[in-house]
């Protein structure tokens, strides 16, 4: 993966309400800012009303922070954490 100096892959771990349209909303929020999703995993958790998403994006730390804050603003997003890969 070709990266610029300040960009790295960040893995976002999101716990979201398991409702229709939530995946589209989250993917749209990231792609709408012009960032490419490298990897996307969605699956159930032990709690059937909650889904877990793992999203890898290539971005700068500043952009990732903005994405996290905007994800947390979403009505269906319960929790977001991130880790630089």
């Amino acid at each position: 993966m070709k990266t610029t100096k300040s960009e790295s892959i960040y893995r976002l771990n999101c716990f979201v309400e398991n409702k229709p349209g939530v995946l589209a909303r989250i993917v749209g929020l990231i792609s709408g800012r012009g960032y490419n999703i490298q990897t996307l995993n969605v699956g159930p958790t032990e709690d059937g009303t909650v889904s877990r998403m793992r999203i890898d994006v290539l971005a700068t730390d500043r952009v990732v922070n903005q994405i996290i804050l905007q994800l947390r603003n979403q009505v269906n997003v319960i929790e977001v954490t991130s880790r630089r890969q």
């Binding site: 922070n65 903005q66 947390r72 603003n73």
Partner: peptide, 11 residues
Amino acid sequence: CDPSAIDKNVV
């Protein structure tokens, strides 16, 4: 009141 407004355009 919006956390995502902080640092959005100016740090």
